[in-house]
Amino acid sequence: MAAHFLSNLPSTTQISKSGFATKHNQSHTTRQAQFLKSSWLIGTKINSSSANFPLRSSYIVSKRRQIAAKVLSSLPTSRPNSAVSNEKAPKWSWRAIKSFAMGELEARKLKHSTTGTEAILMGILVEGTSLAAKFLWANGVTLFKVRDESVKIVGKGDFFFFSPEHPPLTEDAQRVIDWAVDHKLKSGNSGEVTASDLLLGIWSETDSPGHKILAALGFSDEKAKELESLSSEPGSVDD
């Protein structure tokens, strides 16, 4: 009987594990309650996953800044003989930076040694959240269509060729970047260079692959004017 009674008693290990689990759960609940009571979260809708990881948002912001800094360091934003100094040049929006970075990636996927206007166009569509991207999708210009047209016009690179990490811009792609910067300065708008500026820059390069692809998919001067009007409307946000 004594043996049977002893066998039903919780062991020291079980007690310690149970105590640790209870203490851990209480501590987690306390931290979670403190997080939910934070003044900066008042009126903000959150879910259980965000409550469990209060540092996630700050991590994402930090990561985005790191990516932006890396891309900007490789982004040729002005001509060597441009009258616009680096101090006067407008900043780039996050979506424009990501569009450019995705364009480089698309060029590498196609095994191209350079980043052309067609790659920047694909980058805008891959980013997908900018006003320019939404405008293209709404007018039937999709990533798959642009990619197919790119292969027709530019072709694919050699299968065994490895593109550089940052394929240099073609001459017409460089002019697109310059056009976007100059357009923002001439507009008198103190805002950032956006993906819409990049798209309008691609359309301005009439002999470029990007322009030819857009024209083949139904984009026109009227569409370009409509996009420019939308992007210049008060309250238009495309960061």
Rank of each mutant, 00 (worst) to 15 (best):
E106T: 06
L131A: 08
S93V: 00
A107Q: 00
L41V: 02
F144H: 15
Q66Y: 11
V146N: 01
R64V: 11
S74V: 09
M102F: 12
R79G: 07
P54G: 01
A51G: 10
K63A: 15
R64H: 14
F144S: 15
T142H: 07
G103Q: 00
N47I: 09
S113C: 04
P76R: 10
I42G: 11
S48H: 12
V126G: 00
L110G: 09
E106H: 05
K91F: 13
K111C: 01
I60F: 10
M102D: 09
T129H: 14
I46R: 09
V84F: 08
N47C: 08
S62W: 11
T117C: 04
L105T: 10
R64W: 05
V146S: 03
S57R: 12
K109R: 13
L121H: 03
G140Y: 02
G103L: 04
L55S: 15
Q66A: 12
V61S: 14
A132C: 08
S78I: 05
A68K: 11
G123V: 00
A96Y: 03
S62Q: 12
N139A: 03
S49I: 09
M122H: 06
G43S: 06
R65W: 10
V141G: 01
K98I: 11
F100M: 06
V146I: 08
S130T: 04
M122S: 04
A89S: 08
S73E: 13
S113T: 06
R95L: 14
I120T: 06
A69E: 11
M122I: 11
P54R: 03
A89H: 05
R56D: 14
I46E: 09
E106M: 04
F135A: 05
R65F: 11
T117K: 03
L121N: 02
L72Q: 05
R95C: 07
W92Y: 02
A138V: 02
K63M: 14
A107H: 04
